[in-house]
């Protein structure tokens, strides 16, 4: 199955958030670690609600965490 076109900065943000583990992030946003792994690997596009929750954990705007390719936006 093709990867989702939504890319994200979760891995980087986790690193700068005191090397937060996937398990901790998963617990904070109420999903399983496998789901966080799948999102990071761009194998799953989270719901809007989950995307907002993840952004809130890092105190970032949604667009700073998730991005969509420019050619699709046009």
């Amino acid at each position: 199955m093709a990867k989702t076109r939504i890319t994200n900065q979760i891995r980087t943000l986790r690193f700068f958030a005191d090397e937060m583990s996937q398990a901790v992030l998963a617990e904070k946003v109420g999903v399983t670690r496998q789901t966080v792994m799948a999102i990071e690997a761009a194998k799953y596009s989270p719901s809007l609600e989950l995307a907002f929750k993840i952004a809130a954990v890092f105190s970032k705007e949604l667009g700073e965490v998730f991005t969509y390719p420019d050619e699709v936006k046009k």
Binding site: G30, V31, T32, Q34, T35, A38, Y44, P46, S47, L50
Partner: peptide
């Protein structure tokens, strides 16, 4: 095992 999330 945690409860099923949105992906599950």
């Amino acid at each position: 095992n945690t409860n099923a999330d949105e992906r599950d």
